[in-house]
Design a protein around this nucleic acid. Structure first.
Lengths: 208, 208
DNA sequence: GTCGTATAATGACCGGTGGTCACTAATCAG
DNA sequence: CTGATTAGTGACCACCGGTCATTATACGAC
């Protein structure tokens, strides 16, 4: 049934168009006020059509975040052959680049990270998001275990080792985008936070 | 004019009642769905009364955040006589305690930190928030300068030194409340992040 | 061709929300 | 007593996310 296939293709294309239209609108300063009707106009479809493709406005956010996380995961997994310090630097650089290169996507990913958001998400999408996040954590865990085995990081529970590193990274990205910091030298901030994280991991159980 | 004073006192008391009612409702799991009318019912006033006291719903959030930040600032400023490491530990502990002891207030403070929120805030409140934040930053800066002068932290731009520390703290608090972590040992997480921050500050320019 | 079927697409419509405003009630100065 | 001021009020408005009856199109069966 080639015609049915074509129809399915067109259906999927329309879905992408809607997502792209939404993402484009989320570039606006008042992106949280973007309405479903605006998205439908930008995508050149009727408002009802949106709801043939997505259960809710929130699912649009979630699908965009999912796509972002999948791409990031693939990049992070590709660092697995590097020596441990270079691996951390590369993972941080890749994630930094991903979050800093698109204000729209960063906003959406952050928006979808909140517990209040996750609670009301359709189960299907929620599971997908959890799966990608679990895979990402596994990749980071693997890097940390590598560091522990090489004697670079102290031997202690993995979640505690992860905690500081993840905190610093997420906090840094958010500080950047929240506008308090100097826009000029984002690259330097990346270097700073990468060093900060590695330093924390390596020296955290030394006496102060 | 004792009677006018009494009236003013009652007006202020009503304002506090509204803020308390709002804060109580923000403890709900779906706190973002709390409506102005619900707040007015809880405070036992008419809905219109809310708008005699606050320009918008957002101003209610902002006023709660302001109160939180003021109390925190006062506590942070009281650490100024401690030796530098103890000072940092105490500052972190106090801020940690403030954020972790009330889910409602933490939510509100975070909600008010977003750039999108700040943009639409009435100028008066916005200035007040900025002032408190500036004072808080000044207090932290003073502690960091103390560390630099004692030769404990490396000599480099203050904002770069602050960056890692603030990132790690904010990221940690958010990770805790986002629900990914174990609720049991919040105290241990506090110790971890405090060490992580101090380690980062002290060793961040060592060779890795 | 033509009829019945399936389904993507649509926009008028609904319930609920933040915010407004004309009005009431209480108090005060003259 | 009278006019002015102001806290308090809730019916009302514009607008939003989401629904659903209807339309348009393409298909296979005959």
């Amino acid at each position: 049934m080639s015609i049915q296939e074509r129809k399915a293709r067109e259906f999927n294309r329309r879905e992408s168009e809607i997502l792209n239209a939404a993402l484009a609108l989320f570039g606006r300063a008042d992106w949280e006020l973007v309405t479903v009707e605006e998205i439908s106009r930008k995508a050149e479809v009727g408002k009802g059509t949106i709801y043939k493709h997505f259960e809710s406005k929130d699912e649009i956010y979630a699908r965009l975040a999912l796509e972002f996380n999948r791409k990031l995961l693939a990049q992070i997994q590709q660092t697995n052959l590097l020596p441990v310090i270079a691996r951390f630097r590369e993972m941080t650089r890749v994630a930094w680049e991903a979050h800093l290169s698109s204000k729209e996507l960063h906003r959406v990913v952050l928006y979808c990270g909140r517990a209040e958001f996750r609670r009301n998400l359709p189960a299907r999408i929620s599971e997908e998001l959890k799966a990608v996040e679990a895979a990402t954590n596994k990749a980071i865990n693997s890097a940390i275990m590598q560091g522990v085995e090489e004697g670079l990081f102290p031997r202690k529970p993995l979640d505690m080792l992860m905690f500081g590193a993840q905190s610093a990274f997420w906090g840094a990205v958010q500080l950047i985008w929240s506008g308090y910091l100097n826009e000029r030298d984002k690259a330097r901030y990346c270097d700073e936070i990468t060093n900060f994280i590695l330093t924390g991991l390596i020296y955290q159980d030394r006496r102060l």
